[in-house]
């Protein structure tokens, strides 16, 4: 039996469990992702998608199991800015008095000194990131005045500015315009070529087929995991969504 070199995996989650005050949100979940892989995280609301993200970023503690990020602990991944989290639009206060520039600059905070004074390199990283998501015209726009797509791109820029090697995206395609969707999908290809690893949650089955090499179907635990072509079957999807048939899920709207 060959020994596993954990360095090879960007994300290696082994039998992880998360519970909130005794209520189990996720149990015995496994996930292994290599550099350059894009994995879709699919499940119902309350199936543990956000909990999974929270466990990987260290926002919640796991009660059992082990997580290694690039072969190291979650804590050292935090210190090294390894993981970037891109929240869903509903997850942020869009009325917060803050500009696009300031949000993207937050991607650099982890590597700044205690006063968070931007250095030349930070300013450059923020500029470049904003340019890549095509928001250069909106540098000082308050996020409250942006469209849903522009806001999503702002948070993507923050992840880019952070120079993270792992991106966790919560519903990256929900509530965005066609232009943003196209831009995001182009960025995904670039990220893949840069060796970044992406884990994204989505409700949209078409996006899974289009972008994801791998898919992780969860319902409190892993229902199925593997290559999208093999695992993303109507049977598995039905199981994941608690018996609702894929016909319904793939209805005219999606």
């Amino acid at each position: 039996m060959e020994t596993i070199n954990y360095q090879n995996f960007r994300i290696d989650a082994e039998n992880i469990c998360v519970d909130y005050n005794g209520k189990v949100a996720l149990y015995d979940a496994n996930l292994r992702l290599k550099p350059g892989q894009i994995c879709g995280l699919v499940g119902m609301n309350g199936a543990g998608k956000t909990t999974f993200f929270n466990a990987l970023t260290g926002f919640v503690n796991i009660s059992k199991g082990k997580i290694r990020i690039n072969g190291e602990s979650v804590r050292s991944a935090q210190k090294d800015q390894t993981i970037a989290y891109v929240p869903q639009n509903e997850g942020i206060d869009s009325q917060f008095p803050i500009s696009v520039w300031d949000v993207v600059m937050m991607g650099r905070y982890g590597s700044m000194n205690i006063f968070r004074c931007p250095r030349e390199s930070d300013v450059q990283a923020v500029k470049d990131a904003i340019e890549r998501v095509d928001l250069t015209d909106h540098l000082s726009t308050p996020i409250g005045n942006l469209s849903g797509g522009q806001r999503k791109r702002t948070f993507l820029a923050r992840a880019i500015a952070q120079r993270a090697s792992i991106l966790l995206l919560d519903e990256p395609f929900s509530g965005v315009d066609i232009r943003t969707e196209k831009l995001i999908s182009e960025l995904f290809i670039q990220f893949k070529n840069e060796g970044k690893t992406i884990l994204l949650s989505t409700h949209d089955m078409i996006h899974v087929r289009e972008f994801c090499d791998l898919v992780l179907l969860i319902n409190k635990t892993v229902v199925a995991y593997g290559e999208t072509s093999e695992v993303f079957t109507p049977e598995n999807i039905t199981t994941t969504f608690g018996g609702i048939s894929p016909d319904f899920l793939f209805g005219p709207e999606s």
């Binding site: 989290y85 929240p87 206060d93 937050m106």
Partner: peptide, 15 residues
Amino acid sequence: MLYCFDPRHAKTVGI
């Protein structure tokens, strides 16, 4: 400010 705005991001980058 970051803590009020997005505590999850703060935690993710080791703050």
